[in-house]
Design a protein around this nucleic acid. Sequence first.
DNA 1: TGTTAGCACTTGGGCATGTTGAGTGCTAAG
DNA 2: CTTAGCACTCAACATGCCCAAGTGCTAACA
Lengths: 335, 335
Amino acid sequence: MSEPRKLEVLRAIVEDYVHSREPVGSKALVERHHLGVSSATIRNDMAVLEEEGLIAAPHTSAGRIPTDKGYRLFVDRISQVKPLSAAERRAIHSLLEGPDDVDDILERTVRLLSQLTNQVAVVQYPHSHRALVRHAEFVLLAPKQVLVVLIADTGSVVQKVIDAVSDVGNEALMLLRSRFLGSIAGTQLALLPQVLPSVVALCPPDLRALAQRLANGLESLSDTSREERILMAGTANLARSNVDFPLSIGPVLEALEEQVVMLRLLSDMGDDPRGVTVSIGRENPYDGLAEASVVATGYGSGAKVGILGPTRMDYPTTMAAVRAVARYLSRILGG
Amino acid sequence: MSEPRKLEVLRAIVEDYVHSREPVGSKALVERHHLGVSSATIRNDMAVLEEEGLIAAPHTSAGRIPTDKGYRLFVDRISQVKPLSAAERRAIHSLLEGPDDVDDILERTVRLLSQLTNQVAVVQYPHSHRALVRHAEFVLLAPKQVLVVLIADTGSVVQKVIDAVSDVGNEALMLLRSRFLGSIAGTQLALLPQVLPSVVALCPPDLRALAQRLANGLESLSDTSREERILMAGTANLARSNVDFPLSIGPVLEALEEQVVMLRLLSDMGDDPRGVTVSIGRENPYDGLAEASVVATGYGSGAKVGILGPTRMDYPTTMAAVRAVARYLSRILGG
DNA sequence: TGTTAGCACTTGGGCATGTTGAGTGCTAAG
DNA sequence: CTTAGCACTCAACATGCCCAAGTGCTAACA
């Protein structure tokens, strides 16, 4: 039996199964695809594929469905990236318009991606460890409460309330502000922990306690892990795509709600810069996603975008959509 | 037939049905509750209740289940608020500890509430129209890009990127900053639209175009509707509670994702300051929630907290939990 | 050696039929 | 007004049957 045809058969099975959601048999296969052979031959091929663990039969006399391993081979060796439709391109392009507020863009990105793929879309906030300090502000909220605001040149603004031990004077605060600002403006956020102590050390002794607290606040704000958030959209697609095929939706929702889980998942996926990465079924590190696949890729300076859906999904189209969206995202955010 | 007993029967039906998820019959009813009468009598009462539209039979020979109207009566006239368990009180108390960052608190609130009730918990960000301007900052990101930051005395920080028509000088920006700040510091956010025009008018002519843009930015930031966001947790509970009773989960997820829908829903609900409001099944303005109920109440200065779950839910316990959480929330955020 | 036709075999799903039991409504007596 | 009794209804379950889809195997074929 020829190797190319075997792959062709696997490809046909995957495509038919994704389309029909039903086990696919040898006869239907030869009818729908013009493989130049008879169903008997296909049966032989399928027996081999089953032996190799690429497909499986739910019960004795039913068609075959792809296994995780089968999907894996399909994705790695067979599937060709489908070009996007004109309408899809247009939809992605329209992302370029509108305000360039990061939050807005990401929001629209996940919506778009979930609509394009009919899956749950997920995007990680852009990494900012390369970002530079643009401005810092201390605002007195109450006699003993100071709001610390840190603004990066990327336009990201983070803030935190800190409590002082004793009453804080406005003049003192302004003095400290200019001291800090003079030392840290223009430095990388990631370097703040190294720079800040010296600023504190140079402060007048009576302000040092306060300065220390402010420094702590700034440092925690610069901690990029604070930015490790994800945004998602399209959870309703989970319910729709499984209306007659009850993938247990509960565990998946749980995983999606646990940002930690999703972040791990995304960052565990390789970061092949030119292609998208796919994690299929039990390949996922999280048990609740045993029947789900994740298709993701990096954008900009290393954060991830992707989708999550049932293992039975249209990989070529999905992968194309994810890749295209990631590219546009990189372009907009200036990767 | 006595009116009090009729209500008692309704109450028993609701409680049993919520507990067992199965239509409840006359015989089971007399066994499980010590109503002092026989099943035949209950049958008569049930016939009356059915005539009044308070309960219904799925088919000829099955028990009865409460209708929306039945739940309504149950909630309005029968159910007594259950006291919370010690463990629940403790859990809520622990909310008081930890950082008083608004985001953190709300985040923990929804998590807690969803765990307490086993439903989807929803919280609206606190209203800020009474908030005062504490500080405003203009930061030059690029020659033609300015980041406008508005800080309120509540500690809320909002920002927006605006594009200028021509290159912006740093000195000009600083000048405008002090002008704006001098005029708007301490005024209510809600009043900004009235105050800002005069500030623009008093600017030197060559800066007026820029000033106008900045004013627009500030105004849009002060727009409280921008703050009308909601936070939620526990969507996985939707799947769990309906494992053997397929409430169509799809439309519900859709509603939850459409913040607009949820916001309308919450604000449409009355704001009885001392009690919680319940919206049952088809009472909801949104079709997708025809089989769901919302239990919500106000907190702080008028924003809402609540939960969403199947109409078949344990109203007394849920209402107690929502009320308790809302009270603590008001206390922490200083209602 | 790979392909094909033919065929016996397996099996889940659909369908008709029968049975059961929970639950009802009604009536007549207490 | 309550109750016991009874005939009736009907979903849920079980049983048996058949059918179509699909398989694996074997023997013939190129």
